[in-house]
């Protein structure tokens, strides 16, 4: 076994997903099969592979420090389920 049911539950929790016991059981089986199929990864020879972030990379898109106001403010929160004034309202956050 490459991944246990408990590990699946722990990982799902990190990803803010809750699983029923049944779901966790089923997923553990599926993920185990996927990880077994990927077993080959462990044999990849990494000796001479460089790093992805190498010097001499092109300077990508960068923007000047200028204000751009998003014009259509009404559209911005049409998808929000609950507002209070211009605040977004959510149930009490436990600190």
């Amino acid at each position: 076994m490459r991944i246990s049911k408990d590990e699946v539950i722990y990982t799902a929790k990190l990803a803010k997903l809750c699983l029923t016991d049944e779901e966790a059981e089923k997923l553990a089986g599926e993920l185990d099969a996927i990880l077994a199929d990927m077993g080959a990864m462990e044999t990849i020879d990494m000796e001479d592979a460089g790093n992805d972030t190498e010097a001499g990379m092109p300077r990508g898109v960068i923007r000047p420090d200028e204000n751009v106001v998003f014009g259509d403010r009404d559209k911005l929160f049409v998808n929000t389920k609950s507002m209070r004034g211009t605040f977004i309202q959510v149930p009490k956050v436990i600190e």
Binding site: L17, C18, F77, T80, K81, V90, P91, K92, V93, I94
Partner: peptide, 19 residues
Amino acid sequence: GICYGYRAKEYENTDELIE
């Protein structure tokens, strides 16, 4: 589920809302 997208109907707190 906070700014856009599906939001569950029942929850006790924000953590639960998200999950």
